[in-house]
Design a protein around this nucleic acid. Structure first.
Lengths: 347, 347
DNA sequence: GATTGGCACTCATAGGTCTTGAGTGCCAGT
DNA sequence: ACTGGCACTCAAGACCTATGAGTGCCAATC
């Protein structure tokens, strides 16, 4: 087992290695950190840490660097969350400025997060399917062409132009609009979808074709692929930290661009920390834990955000395993709170 | 002046250098290309090309590589545009598949272009301001809250939620909607904006506050910052070609992410080739020509696209100066045609 | 038992020297 | 105008060596 001082040594190694990207030796530890013991003692502790596979030596005789497992232990025993500095808070405020709509808010937020952490920042687009219906509208564009608009309480507006098989008259469109709104406003999306399907069956034979087509268009908006999408900023930061990766960062950038694996990872992280709050609300996935997603040698920090208390999606950062977890976790948490507050105000 | 064979030698050097990233020597030229002359003769031609600064030697005694000026001459005398292979056409078709809306079409198109060229692909978001109004709608969401929707003939749908200072009744909203539509449908955006401003003054005193607020919201949608935006794919390709840059690609990725400089470059390229058609419709900006935009050592190929004949925005690729201009120009042109056709069908 | 100073050992890194060979420039000859 | 021949250049790779940070271990000490 690792002693109390052993953990302190691990902390020191992680901190110094993150700061300098050089393997950390026993001497430099006693120099920089005020352990009241000699280098030889630290060496004994380091030998134990190495037995536990928390640190490793790149070459037989050189300093040590943390292993993935070492980072994991380090992160798990991080408890005091350093709050953001005044300058950082100010930076967030400036970035978020006066945003006009949801897309704008998210775009600014993701940039702010990238700026704060110097990592790749990611925001999962708020899932329509986890929000409630605020309003439903059909806009007559031309004969046989209608625009379907769905507005969710989270501020998401989804729209789609539909080409109909049959003609319609505006009166019928209004009737359907009013009936649909009366039926589904305030309902969560899955319930709303079910209700709409039921509603369609209650219309008279003559109108069925039109109603079916329009209801289908609303349903397709609800299921929109758009809901599973990431907004990204700070890819340049990954290039800047290229030396932290053993191979090329090409496959990593590619995986980020493709999004699909990353979305799976976000999903898993959401499932894992379901219901967790307080100091542990930022979940961390480290190094090899991300290998199944083509993201080995990276770490991903995420947390949930949403308006009015309910989590509607996640945001976070991705960077090399060798990153400043403490600072980045604080930034992710803070930005998630800001964003949640902003969304709450809007809705 | 450079002889006919001199140009052929330049072509050979560009081709071989692009293919191998190794300086090209006189011997390898006579080996690979069937000039009916000896290496010494080629060397004489190369000496002339060097006098004209079309090629340069990295070290006193090594092969030659094209200069920016050399690439420029090479590109300018490219005339025969190789059409895409069947496989490539097929790839485009597959990528573009069945798209649901404008955003989807653009996202798929930009991916296809990145895939085809193995470069960073860029599409300028269709400018609302260059399109015509197809429909205008106000949707009553709540007391004092209205959704403004503007649909352009290019398929762009812009929307915004507005919080009003005063109450409104639905009847007034409809009246205004009908009046506004009657006034502006079919007009180009700038004219539509002017018309709306004029329309506002014709409403009676009592309704003025509401009308002004709503008109203002429409105008702000017309001016939406969103119109000046780029959609991007294939950043990973830039990382892959990192060795082609003397320094870090960090500032380049950053410039691409920030978009602002790149948009300026797109603007300049649009202005330059205003009215150009046919074989010269893809414009090329090479190496140092891009330095003012923070994109030295890169080349950018762009061309216009748009529905029903009018150019509404541009698309293109960005990559290292050392790229396959011929193939990439063909791909850019082909993708622009596909996209224009798709947009034409939709509208 | 924990801690320490001492010491032999390891090995990546940096610097230095040498060799190799692709490629040039130039010139005299065709 | 073109070619063969030849001396010259210089980057890249191979090889060697010195340096020194850092280790592991042990006997001595608290």
């Amino acid at each position: 087992m690792v002693s109390e001082r052993g953990l302190a040594v691990l902390r020191a190694i992680v901190q110094d290695y993150v700061a300098t990207r050089e393997p950390v030796g026993s001497k430099s530890i006693v120099d920089k950190h005020r352990f009241g013991v000699s280098a030889a003692t630290i060496r004994n502790d380091m030998a134990l840490l190495e037995d536990e596979e928390l640190i490793a030596a790149p070459h037989t005789s050189s300093g040590r660097i943390p292993t993935d497992k070492g980072y994991r232990v380090f992160v798990n025993q991080l408890t005091d969350v350093r709050p953001l500095s005044g300058a950082q808070r100010h930076a967030i405020e400036v970035f978020l400025g006066d945003s006009v709509d949801l897309d704008d808010v998210l775009a600014r937020t993701v940039r702010a997060l990238a700026q704060l952490t110097h990592q790749v920042a990611l925001i999962q687009y708020p899932s329509v399917s986890r929000a409630k219906v605020q309003h439903l509208e059909f806009v007559a564009l031309a004969p046989r062409r209608v625009l379907t608009v769905l507005i969710a309480d989270s501020g998401i507006v989804e729209q789609r132009v539909v080409d109909l098989d049959s003609d319609y008259d505006e009166e019928a469109l209004h009737t359907l609009r009013d009936a649909a709104n009366a039926a589904v406003v305030g309902l969560p999306m899955p319930d709303a979808a079910a209700m709409l399907r039921a509603l369609a069956t209650r219309f008279p034979e003559g109108a069925r074709a039109l109603v079916d087509e329009l209801v289908a268009s609303v349903l397709s908006v609800i299921d929109a692929t758009r809901q599973e999408r990431l907004i990204m900023a700070g890819a340049a930061n990954l290039v800047r930290t290229e030396h932290d990766f053993s191979g090329s960062i090409y496959p990593i950038i590619e995986a980020i661009e493709q999004q699909v694996e990353l979305l799976k990872l976000f999903g898993e992280m959401a499932a894992e920390q379901h219901g967790v709050v307080g100091n542990r609300d930022v979940s961390v996935s480290i190094g090899r834990e991300n290998e199944p997603f083509g993201l080995a040698e990276t770490s991903v920090l995420t947390t949930g955000y949403g308006s009015s208390g309910s989590v509607i999606a996640r945001l976070g950062v991705l960077g090399p395993t060798r990153m400043d977890y403490s600072t980045n976790m604080a930034a992710v948490r803070a930005v998630a709170r800001y964003l949640s507050r902003t969304l709450g105000e809007q809705a």
